[in-house]
């Protein structure tokens, strides 16, 4: 019984560390991404990882209500991603579909 508890605690901590490293790597792509689309994908990945982080943290803290936060966050993040993708399409349209390096500096 004690053994199982220890296993679960270790697994939770390992997962939290992996998720934090993942968010860090996605953040690097958010900084260097050559195209706005790259940054949108990175933001989308970060928000999915934050949903996963909230779920894992609700196990770590033994607190159910983090799940509600995760659901609400997933809803809002999806809306944000859709809006940003629309923005990228409009940017391309406004500039007559030029190449990427030109329509970054709007």
């Amino acid at each position: 019984m004690n053994m199982e508890n220890f296993l679960l605690k270790a697994a939770t901590e390992l997962t939290l560390v992996l998720l934090m490293l993942g968010i860090l790597l996605a953040f690097i792509r958010l900084l260097i991404g050559p195209d706005p689309a790259d940054r949108i994908v990175a933001l989308d990945l970060i928000s999915i990882l934050i949903v996963a982080f909230l779920a894992a943290f609700s196990i770590y803290a033994d607190e159910k209500s983090f799940l509600d936060v995760a659901i609400a966050y997933a809803l809002i993040a999806f809306l944000g991603t859709v809006a940003l993708a629309r923005y990228r399409e409009r940017l391309a349209k406004k500039h007559g579909q030029l190449n990427t390096d030109k329509d970054i500096d709007t």
Partner: peptide
């Protein structure tokens, strides 16, 4: 948990 953590990490490694 561990499977999900590994997949998430691989996802952002691939992202990079």
């Amino acid at each position: 948990l561990i499977a999900g953590g590994i997949f998430s990490f691989i996802a952002s490694l691939g992202m990079l």
